[in-house]
Every structure is written in C-alpha cells, then in structure tokens.
Simulated scan of single mutants.
Amino acid sequence: MTTEEIKDRILSYKAQGKRLFTTSSFQTHSIVLLHIISEVDNSIPVYFLNTGYLFPETLKFRDEVSAMLGLNVKDLQSVIPKSMQRDHEGKLFFVSDPDHCCSINKTQPLENILASHDIWINGVRADQSAARKAMKVEQSAPFGVTRFHPMLQWNAKSIYEYRKKYNLPSHSMESKGYFSVGCEPCTRRIDPQMQERDSRWFGMNKTECGLHTELINK
C-alpha cells in the first residue's frame, strides 16, 4: 500500500467509528508507520510492550520518537513480576522457556487491549519471515479485532527511502550491527550472511514472539 492508501484506510476506519490502536517495538523500521499514523491522528494509542528486558537504547529511542511525533504512547507490562518469572530450577524463563517468557511479557498483556479495540494497525512486513509472508493486509484476531497490515509489501529499501525523505532518526544500535532489536538476552549482532530477523533468538528453534502467531486467526 502507498502512504496515501494507508492514510485513507485509517481515515475510513475512523469514519466507521472503529476503535484503533497500534503496537510498536520502536526499532528503526518501526518509525515509518508511526510517522504515517502521526500525520493522520497522533491520538491513536501506541502500545509499547515493555518486557523489562529491553536495551536502554530502545527506551531512549521510544522517548525521542514519541516526543518528535507527538505520539500517544502507552507502556504495557506483564502482571507477573520478574522475581516470579522463573522455572522450578530457578532459571529465568528467557533461558529455559523463551516461548513462555514471550507469552507472559508480550501476548498476554495485549489481550485486554484487543478486547477493547476494533482495529490493530500492525507494521509486519512479508520480507521479514515465512510466517509474515503468509499474511494478508487484513486478518482477524482474537476478541473480534481486525489486524491491518499496511506495510506488508514494503521492504528494507522502501523503509530506508521513506526515512531519508522525511529525515527520520534511526535506532542508535543499528550502527553497531543490530538490525532487529528485541529483548537484550535474545538479540545479537547480525552477521553478513544473516537475514534481518536471524539475530533474534539465535540458536533457538524460535522465530516469532507470539504476537504474529498466537494473536492472529488463521
């Protein structure tokens, strides 16, 4: 979808009285959708899943981008304290059970938001993973929510060109070789032969946190 098509679709949802929200990880590639949304209606809530394991640079970038675009950012956190996020051996879940760690820190906190909204504006791209490649521009999600994927056919080049056109900042860790920045324990620098998201959960049988697998109806 073009920028104008995205804006028109958001305006159409609003005209229908739909309750909209978006989520953002505040990475370099996230800023394009945030910029587009801010130009339509910067009161649309932007939910930030603060797992407690994020890089300080990500929190700083969130604050900088929020202030620059005037975004309505709301932090979401798990109701389970970190002291209780351990298995029976005392190991933190991100070590022993990363799927469960993602579930309690990402998917579960978002469920109440889904239950109170109609449209989830989501920035997934088809070139990021096999699961995302199979997605459609509009898909249903739990609690009767419609997921809207306006960036689905965008790629790294179009993201870069948009950022350059509007002089948008980049996440400071990108210059250090981090092109997909998630939680600190599960993110590493990217090697030349790796794809963008290969640096996440490296060495584990895992490619998604659950937001785009558990919270989408097939």
Rank of each mutant, 00 (worst) to 15 (best):
T2E: 09
T3I: 14
E4M: 10
E5F: 04
I6L: 13
I6K: 03
K7D: 08
K7M: 13
K7G: 09
D8I: 11
L11C: 09
Y13V: 02
Y13T: 05
K14V: 03
K14N: 06
K18P: 05
R19N: 14
F21H: 12
S24W: 06
S25L: 10
I31M: 01
I31V: 15
V32W: 03
L33R: 05
L34C: 00
I36Y: 00
E39L: 12
E39G: 11
S43P: 07
T51Y: 04
Y53Q: 12
L54S: 01
F55R: 07
F55Y: 13
F55L: 01
E57G: 09
D63G: 10
E64T: 06
E64W: 01
S66C: 06
S66R: 05
S78I: 00
I80G: 00
S83I: 14
R86T: 14
H88Q: 12
H88F: 11
H88G: 12
E89M: 13
G90S: 05
G90D: 04
G90A: 10
F93Q: 00
V95S: 02
S96D: 00
D99L: 07
H100T: 13
C101R: 06
C101K: 03
S103W: 08
S103R: 15
N105F: 01
Q108Y: 09
L110T: 07
L110P: 00
A115I: 11
D118K: 04
D118T: 12
D118H: 12
I119A: 00
I119P: 02
I121S: 01
I121G: 06
A126H: 00
D127E: 11
Q128L: 07
S129A: 09
A130C: 09
K133A: 14
A134C: 01
A134H: 08
V137M: 13
Q139H: 11
F143D: 08
F143H: 15
G144E: 14
G144S: 13
V145D: 05
R147Y: 08
R147A: 06
M151G: 06
M151I: 02
M151F: 01
Q153F: 07
Q153C: 03
W154C: 03
A156G: 04
S158M: 15
I159F: 11
Y160T: 09
E161V: 06
R163G: 09
R163A: 05
K164S: 10
K164A: 13
K165S: 12
L168V: 03
P169Q: 09
E174W: 02
E174K: 12
E174N: 15
E174P: 02
K176L: 14
V181K: 02
V181F: 05
C183L: 00
C183G: 04
P185Q: 03
D191E: 15
D191P: 07
Q193E: 15
Q195G: 12
E196C: 10
E196W: 08
W201D: 00
G203N: 09
K206H: 11
T207N: 07
E214I: 10
I216W: 00
I216R: 07
N217P: 02
K218Q: 13
